[in-house]
Simulated assay, not measured.
Amino acid sequence: MIEYLFHSTWNSEWDEFVVYLQQFKDISFILTKGNHDILPKAVLTLSPLQVVDYLQLGDRLILSHEVIPDIPRHTMNIVGHLHPGVQIQRRGRQLFRLPCFVLQDNVFLLPAFGRWTGLHILKNTAYNQVFAIVGNGVIEVF
Rank of each mutant, 00 (worst) to 15 (best):
residue 17 F to Y: 12
residue 20 Y to E: 11
residue 23 Q to H: 13
residue 29 F to D: 04
residue 29 F to V: 03
residue 30 I to P: 01
residue 34 G to L: 00
residue 36 H to T: 05
residue 36 H to L: 05
residue 37 D to R: 03
residue 38 I to Y: 14
residue 42 A to M: 04
residue 48 P to M: 11
residue 50 Q to M: 12
residue 51 V to P: 11
residue 53 D to Y: 14
residue 54 Y to H: 07
residue 55 L to H: 11
residue 59 D to E: 02
residue 61 L to Q: 04
residue 62 I to R: 04
residue 63 L to I: 04
residue 63 L to P: 08
residue 64 S to N: 00
residue 67 V to H: 06
residue 68 I to A: 07
residue 68 I to R: 11
residue 69 P to I: 06
residue 73 R to A: 13
residue 73 R to N: 15
residue 78 I to R: 15
residue 79 V to R: 13
residue 79 V to H: 13
residue 82 L to P: 08
residue 84 P to G: 15
residue 84 P to Y: 15
residue 90 R to T: 01
residue 91 R to Y: 10
residue 91 R to A: 14
residue 91 R to H: 15
residue 93 R to Q: 10
residue 94 Q to M: 12
residue 95 L to N: 15
residue 95 L to M: 10
residue 96 F to G: 06
residue 97 R to N: 13
residue 97 R to Y: 10
residue 99 P to T: 09
residue 102 V to F: 06
residue 102 V to I: 03
residue 102 V to W: 05
residue 103 L to C: 05
residue 104 Q to T: 10
residue 104 Q to C: 10
residue 105 D to E: 06
residue 110 L to V: 00
residue 110 L to D: 04
residue 111 P to R: 03
residue 113 F to R: 04
residue 114 G to C: 03
residue 116 W to S: 15
residue 120 H to K: 14
residue 122 L to P: 03
residue 124 N to G: 10
residue 127 Y to H: 12
residue 130 V to G: 01
residue 132 A to V: 03
residue 133 I to G: 02
residue 135 G to E: 04
